[in-house]
């Protein structure tokens, strides 16, 4: 018999109402053991009928319970005592299994959490590195644009006698007057000193701004003050904060 046929046969309903013959009872019990769907359906029918009965509930007089307990020799007035309830072995196994499962899942959770944490940390540092590298990229892209700009005139500043290795490169944009310096090749300024940039305009050095300390070796352009015209550019070594006039020029280059 198909499960649907069993369910629609009406036998489960009769079974739940206690109206089956002994033979039918056995049949239904077999189905219940064999088909979980039938067991579920039967339980559902039983529940419905249970609720139907409770909708028609009729409380009995209080004396019935008293008489009942008297008849069975049970003392109803006993205060509840704490006692050990023996739990069926099936429940013990279930309880033990659930504790083991819980512990196992705790361990797994712990392991997974640690893995997650590691992955998260790795992701964070990767993201940071990516951002750094992106902004470096951006910077280099901008620098590249300046260098390759058709209006860009490169000017090499050479170290003077006092500091022969004070070399730097200027990119001067003719059309806009923007001046950029690659000062990464300059030796480190001595303690308390700072390089200052100058443009020689009409034979007079004009302040072009202080040169910020740069990372050695990593190409980087720094924007200086703009000059519409200039004959040469120079770098002087000044005390920190700069000077209105150059005190010690260390590097110079003429615009060709």
């Amino acid at each position: 018999m198909e499960i649907n046929e069993i369910i629609s046969s009406g036998l489960l309903d009769s079974y739940a109402m206690g109206l089956c013959t002994e033979e039918e009872n056995l049949q239904v019990q077999q189905w219940v053991q064999k088909y979980p769907e039938v067991a579920v359906e039967l339980a559902s029918i039983e529940r419905s009928l249970e609720d139907y009965a409770s909708a028609h509930a009729l409380p009995a007089s209080g004396s019935v319970k008293k008489n009942l307990f008297d008849q069975l020799g049970l003392d109803q007035s006993d205060a509840p005592v704490a006692k050990t309830i023996s739990i069926g072995s099936r429940w013990k196994w279930l309880a033990a299994a659930s504790i083991i499962l819980f512990l196992a899942s705790s361990v797994i959770n712990f392991v997974l959490y640690n893995q997650y944490k590691k992955a998260d940390d790795a992701l964070a540092s990767t993201t940071e590195a990516l951002h750094t590298s992106l902004s470096q990229n951006k910077q280099m892209e901008n620098d590249g644009k300046i260098i390759s700009d058709p209006n860009s005139i490169p000017v090499s500043l050479k170290g003077l006698e006092a500091m022969p290795d004070a070399v730097a490169k200027i990119f001067w944009l003719q059309n806009s007057g923007d001046v950029f310096i690659d000062a990464t090749s300059l030796p480190d300024a001595p303690e308390g000193k700072q390089y200052q940039f100058w443009a020689i305009v009409g034979g007079v050095p004009v302040n072009g701004g202080l040169i910020l300390k740069t990372n050695k070796g990593s190409f980087h352009l720094q924007r200086m003050k703009s000059f519409g015209k200039a004959e040469a550019f120079a770098i002087s070594l000044e005390k920190e904060g700069g000077s209105p006039t150059p005190t010690k020029v260390v590097s110079m280059g003429k615009i060709i």
């Binding site: 009965a53 409380p59 319970k65």
Partner: peptide, 18 residues
Amino acid sequence: KQAFSYLYDHYSASLNGV
């Protein structure tokens, strides 16, 4: 005994109704 008392309290009215 207590479970029996509980059983009575919870099911006696339904059974009595039937």
